[in-house]
């Protein structure tokens, strides 16, 4: 195997310039997904962009707005309150959370396992993703970013502090199992209810039909089935996901009510 040419930018500006319009270039965040894939030859990029020295890590707050740099390790998110804290503590284990990044989680592909647990959480929070690539810089809602994320370099994600958040998920047999399905419910500062799901489509999805029925958690659970693209994989069948999604939507909404 031909080794990729490796670029190691030392500033955000240099990272943006090195990435350019993307193309045949693999972005390495923490590398917890990509490093084994490159080593095994499953990914064969001609160039690799390593972001560890690019200055993209860190959490900042301005008023009620929180901004998380793409290279911030997952472990740094546990202080951010619900629903992020609950979701993050359920990802992998201590060591992986110390190395895996927010940008990598947002861009994790769902190909062989439902990875990228923060996607549904950030959708529910109404987070904005700031990225660069062909056409320059773009800031857009997480649910719009996710389907078109190929060839984008994520710089950061930001969101307004919610009034309350809840995270309901299928528990795992071991820290290294992936979460087959999870639902995040958020009550925003203006009282709107937002719902996001993970493991219910090719990436995290918003659940608009369930949001419209949110006043009745059980009805919302059933309504959610109209919003998803359920699939079979090694850890759960589409049938099982269909049976459990309504339960998780109901639980997340009930949990949210309790924090009223």
């Amino acid at each position: 195997m031909e080794d990729p040419a490796v670029l190691i930018p030392t500033s955000v500006a240099e990272a943006i310039e090195s990435f350019g319009a993307g193309g045949d270039i693999a972005i390495i965040g923490g590398g917890t997904i990509l490093v084994p894939e490159i080593r095994l030859g499953h990914a064969r990029p001609s160039r690799a962009l390593m972001l560890h020295g690019a200055g993209l890590a860190g959490i900042s707050r301005e008023g009620t707005r929180t901004t998380i740099g793409a290279m911030t390790p997952l472990s740094a998110l546990s202080s951010l309150g619900e629903p992020i804290a609950a979701a993050v503590s359920n990802i992998a284990d201590l060591e992986i959370r110390g190395q895996g990044t927010v940008g990598g989680n947002l861009c994790a592909q769902n190909t062989d396992a439902p990875r990228g647990d923060l996607q549904g959480v950030l959708i529910a929070l109404g987070a904005t993703v700031r990225s660069v690539g062909a056409g320059g810089e773009r800031s857009e809602p997480a649910e719009t970013f996710l389907p078109g994320r190929a060839d984008r370099l994520v710089l950061d994600v930001s969101f307004d502090a919610p009034a309350a958040g809840a995270y309901a998920y299928l528990d795992r047999a071991h820290t290294h199992e992936y979460t087959a399905l999870a639902v995040t419910a958020v009550r925003t500062a203006d009282g709107t209810i937002r719902l996001g799901a993970n493991g219910a489509g090719p990436h995290g999805l918003r659940l608009p039909s369930a949001e419209a029925a949110a006043a009745d958690p059980s009805a919302a659970g059933v309504a959610a089935l109209a919003d998803v693209q359920l699939f079979d994989d090694a850890i759960a069948s589409a049938w099982y996901r269909e049976k459990t999604l309504p339960v998780l939507v109901r639980r997340a909404l009930e949990q949210l009510k309790e924090t009223a």
Binding site: G31, M50, I96, G98, Q99
Partner: peptide, 19 residues
């Protein structure tokens, strides 16, 4: 494969040496 990198436990199989 876990080792300590600057005091933190890390999976050495996942860490590119340049990082």
């Amino acid at each position: 494969c876990t080792v300590l990198v600057n005091g933190e436990p890390r999976r050495s199989c996942l860490l590119p040496i340049a990082a």
